Amino acid sequence: MPLTDTAIRNAKPREDGKPDKLADGGSLFLWVMPNGAKYWRMSYRFNGKQKTLACGVYPDTSLKEAREKREAARKLLQAGTDPGEEKKQQKREKKLAAENSFEIISREWYTKELPRWSEGHAKRVIESLEADAFPDLGKYPIDSLTAPIILECIRKIEKRGAIETGQRVLQRIGAVMRYAIQTGRAAHNVTADLVGVLRAPKVEHRPALARSELKEFYRRLAAEPIYQPTRIAMHLLMLTFVRPGELRHARWEEFDMERAEWRIPAERMKMREAHIVPLSSQALELLQQLRPLTGRGALLFPAMTDHDRPMSENTLSYAMGRMGYKGQATPHGFRALASTVLNEEGFNADVIERQLAHAERNKIRAAYHRAEYLEERRKMMQWWADFLQNHQIDGITVR
Rank of each mutant, 00 (worst) to 15 (best):
Leu221Glu: 03
Ala131Cys: 09
Lys75Asn: 02
Glu273Ile: 00
Gly120Pro: 06
Ile264Leu: 15
Tyr110Trp: 07
Thr230His: 14
Thr340Leu: 02
Val169Gly: 03
Leu316Asp: 07
Glu267Gln: 08
Met271Lys: 14
Arg74His: 09
Pro141Lys: 03
Asn343Arg: 00
Val125Asn: 06
His235Gly: 11
Arg67Trp: 10
Arg370Glu: 10
Glu213Phe: 12
His235Thr: 12
Tyr227Cys: 10
Tyr373Phe: 08
Asn100Ile: 04
Lys21Met: 05
Asn343Ile: 02
Ala192Glu: 15
Lys38Thr: 12
Glu376Pro: 08
Thr81Arg: 12
Arg124Asn: 10
Ala357Tyr: 07
Met311Cys: 12
Arg155Phe: 13
Met320Tyr: 13
Thr397Ser: 15
Met269His: 07
Lys94His: 14
Arg268Pro: 03
Ala54Asp: 11
Lys123Asn: 14
Ile264Thr: 02
Ile352Trp: 05
Val190Glu: 07
Pro2Asn: 02
Val195Tyr: 11
Met381Asn: 00
Glu258Lys: 14
Leu374Phe: 11
Met311Gln: 06
Glu273Pro: 00
Asp24Pro: 01
Leu221Met: 11
Asn10Ser: 14
Leu63Ile: 08
Ala367Tyr: 02
Thr4Arg: 10
Ile149Gln: 06
Pro115Asp: 08
Gly321Asp: 12
Phe241Arg: 01
Ala200Val: 10
Asn47Met: 14
Phe301Asn: 15
Ile276Asp: 07
Glu158Trp: 11
Thr81Ile: 15
Leu209Glu: 04
Leu284Glu: 05
Lys88Phe: 12
Ala73Lys: 01
Ile264Gly: 05
Thr230Pro: 14
Trp31Asp: 15
Glu127Asp: 12
Lys18Trp: 07
Val203Pro: 00
Ala122Tyr: 14
Ala319Trp: 08
Gly395Ile: 11
Arg70Ile: 01
Gln282Glu: 01
Arg92Tyr: 07
Ser280Thr: 00
Leu374Val: 06
Gln89His: 13
Met42Glu: 10
Glu71Val: 06
Leu342Tyr: 04
Phe387Ile: 07
Asp5Gly: 03
Arg92Cys: 02
Leu221Lys: 05
Phe217Tyr: 15
Glu360Ile: 08
Lys91Ala: 08
Glu158Ser: 05
Glu313Gly: 01
Ala223Pro: 04
Tyr39Asp: 10
Phe241Leu: 00
Ile226Asp: 13
Gly161Tyr: 08
Ile364His: 13
Arg168Asn: 06
Leu290Gln: 03
Gln328Met: 09
Arg219Glu: 15
Ile364Tyr: 12
Tyr218Thr: 02
Gly36Asp: 13
Leu76Val: 00
Leu137Val: 10
Leu342His: 06
Gln289Pro: 06
Lys156Asn: 13
Phe46Ile: 06
His121Gly: 13
Leu96Pro: 01
Ile393Pro: 04
Lys88Asn: 11
Gly138Arg: 07
Gly174Asp: 09
Arg92Trp: 05
